[in-house]
């Protein structure tokens, strides 16, 4: 049974990745899982300088999911290079660095700083809904998405994945724009903008009022968008959005995802990535699939 997949020239031992911002750099999960078994660790967003993040409350539960407004709290690229790359390199897995910024030059600065570092993939985060300037602003306009993609691509030494926002009317327009600007792959979906109000206090629960909705509640939207994007571009697609089980992962692969990422499920169960991997394997055994690549995008 062949589980290995290829994303922009980088071979992953299996299609199970972690979704940025739900896995840190992996340390929090080491007590429960063997990181060697992951196809790729996609780390929490890394900025050029340390970011404080948003005030609490940052998390609220919703039916079948949660809304977060963490705001990309991170200790910055220098810390990441000094502490997290050597730590992650103890494991036989791929490293994908999620890059965040408020301006094009901030994104470029991170990619430039990582150019000589030992990481396998970059993921351009132009879709975080929790940052006022930059962030999602780049992800909802095709021209801005293309501009930041081509600027980062110029300095990047690793293949560049662009992570798309679902908070747009036509996601294929953005996908085509970043493909035209030189992206090597596309990942989707980031969280959907959502909100919750405390009816007794008559106030928003999150300090930022709105945040990113994730979890199984968003899965059907994600499957639809992965299918649309896979039809619209030639680039490899990494699918995510509410994957809880191996069966969920298979749905994304059939829709056109070459690899998938487990996000919120890891927060609910630190062993979720392993369970998804085992579920994918058992589906392949049950249905007599020899190579995972034979399933990618076969539902038209």
């Amino acid at each position: 049974m062949k589980l290995a997949v290829n994303i922009a020239g980088v071979e992953l031992k299996n299609p199970v990745m972690t979704a940025s911002g739900t896995f840190g750099s992996g340390r929090d999960f080491e007590p429960w899982i063997d990181l060697n078994r992951l196809g790729c660790v996609v780390v929490k967003g890394v900025a050029a300088t340390p970011w404080a993040g948003n005030p609490p409350p940052r998390i609220v539960e919703t039916w079948g999911g949660m809304i977060n407004s963490v705001g990309l709290q991170n200790p910055g690229v220098e810390y990441f290079i000094a502490e997290d790359i050597p730590w992650l390199r103890q494991f036989d897995t791929r490293i994908c660095v999620n890059i965040v910024g408020r301006t094009v030059s901030e994104y470029v600065a991170v990619a430039e700083r990582l150019a000589g570092e030992d990481v396998d993939l970059l993921e351009l985060n132009i879709s975080c809904p929790n940052i006022k300037e930059g962030g999602v602003a780049f992800g909802v306009q095709a021209e801005a998405a293309a501009a930041v993609t081509s600027a980062v691509k110029k300095v990047a030494r690793q293949p560049l994945i662009v992570k798309l926002s679902p908070n747009v009317s036509d996601i294929t327009e953005i996908a085509r724009a970043v493909e035209g600007a030189g992206a090597d792959g596309i990942s989707l979906i980031n969280t959907l903008l959502g909100s919750r109000i405390d009816i007794w206090k008559r106030k928003f629960i999150l300090s930022m009022k709105h945040g990113g909705l994730s979890g199984p509640a968003i899965k059907p939207i994600a499957v639809r968008m992965v299918w649309q994007v896979a039809q619209a571009v030639k680039l490899p697609v990494i699918g995510m959005g509410g994957i809880m089980t191996g069966e969920d992962a298979i749905e994304f692969i059939l829709a056109g995802a070459t690899a998938i990422a487990v996000g919120t499920a890891s927060l609910l169960n630190p062993e979720a990535t392993m369970q998804v991997l085992e579920g994918v394997e058992s589906y392949m055994r049950e249905t007599g699939v020899e190579d995972i690549a034979d399933l990618v995008g076969i539902v038209k």
Partner: peptide
Amino acid sequence: ERMGCGFGACVGCVTKIITDNES
């Protein structure tokens, strides 16, 4: 504080700790 995961991964349940920096 309102928590997400409970084991450090989601970075949801934060509190301000006094530090010698700009803020």
